[in-house]
Nucleic acid binder design. Structure first.
Lengths: 222, 222
DNA sequence: ACATTTCTGTTGTAATTACAACAAAAGGAA
DNA sequence: TTCCTTTTGTTGTAATTACAACAGAAATGT
């Protein structure tokens, strides 16, 4: 645990918490660290989730398999994103998603009730923690809406331009690197990979974008 | 305010709160009531939202206009849903959506900080309120994922069957009424209305579903 | 370096969809 | 009722997409 202190301390969940309180809180929250390997499932469809997971390191895809067996990537999560919070807070809800590690991943596991309820110890900054928790779940919410915007476009071209434009805004630059490989991006945008590749090439040829591997440049204002 | 007490008391935000505490809390949260008429915008794209809105009565669509001018319905909200929580909690984020009333609507407006931070008055059930707030935002989260599932299907037929199946599950019955009219449903599923009507007719003819106006019956297991 | 596997791009074709234009039905107002 | 408006259903056509099959490039392991 000790060796992860710095990471935990710098996580957005514990932003604004002093060192001594962090100690007390981690104990109070029955915090544990868990390492997952690439390909491991942190949560699977149907699970009743009882703990919340804060990603300290690594990448996790939130996925779902369609009735027809196609993979659907809902989100790609990183350090400081949480997994399971909305499931635990909803109480006794079966998970509707898989959380699968796409890299080796380090996770902080916490007790939800202890996080949301003020404890006897009355850590004085517990309020800040609750606030951080709201911030984290809200950010997730806003990203889901952004994803809906991306995939709600009618054509492959419009989906790509909307997605790239949103990435550009998030990176505050017209050049940026994306975390998806082509198949993942297709599964995220719910389009055929080959048709997507074709459209990317066309957009490049027409001078709207440029790209090399996962580095993209947006040459137009959307 | 007095005349809305019963509604407020029965809202999921104040579930588990005693009457006397409700009084104190409403004062503490600077709670106000506002009536909107059909067509009114509660939040518009670009707004910096500073209050949270709890729907007591009515229906509100969360919408977004695409760059190309098409309407996108993200969610339809009802009594006990909140509007703006994820925007306020994210702090100084411009709204990426419009919240538009599709009926006359009654809303309870609250101060976010007062809700999430324990107050001096230390209302003893403030913890329950925070818990309720997490439950509300989590439910929204899960519904967004459900919507993503609906619109991530490849064909109009699959989108319809997935949507109807999810509605059926939510209603715990294979017969149910939907809140969307045909154009709204098409805007929610991001498909062409006429093509959707055609597919609905085909599904009915083939015996998979039955419907009359907005009453649907699902005759197959998805 | 080499072999092998994975990832990305390209092309043709069949299937699906959007769109427009119109018909039919339902709902509202005078 | 009748007229008018809104909503829903139907059809044909052009545009878009999925899918399969394959080629080339890049990454990986030995």
């Amino acid at each position: 645990m000790q060796k992860y202190y710095q990471k935990i301390k710098n996580s957005s969940l514990f932003y604004g918490i002093t060192d001594s309180e962090l100690d007390r809180m981690l104990e109070c929250f029955s915090a544990t660290i868990k390492k997952y390997e690439e390909g491991d499932l942190i949560i699977r469809q149907g699970d009743i989730v009882t703990k919340i997971f804060l990603i300290l390191e690594g990448e996790v895809n939130i996925e779902k398999d369609t009735y027809w067996g196609r993979r659907m990537i809902i989100q790609k999560l990183h350090a400081n994103n949480n997994i399971g919070l909305s499931l635990v807070a909803s109480k006794n809800v079966e998970s509707n998603i898989n959380a699968i590690c796409t890299t080796d991943t380090l996770v902080l596991i916490l007790n939800y009730e202890k996080c949301t309820r003020m404890c006897q110890n009355a850590c004085s900054h517990h309020g800040a923690l609750i606030d951080n928790l709201f911030k984290i779940i809200s950010k997730e919410n806003i990203e889901l809406i952004e994803k809906i915007e991306n995939i709600s476009q009618k054509t492959i071209r419009d989906k790509l331009l909307t997605y790239l434009s949103n990435e550009s805004i998030k990176n505050k630059s017209n050049t940026f690197e994306i975390n998806f490989n082509r198949q993942e991006l297709a599964d995220y945008l719910n389009i055929d990979r080959s048709a997507m590749s074709f459209e990317l090439s066309k957009l490049k040829q027409e001078g709207f974008i440029d790209f090399n591997k996962n580095k993209f440049k947006l040459k137009v204002e959307i």
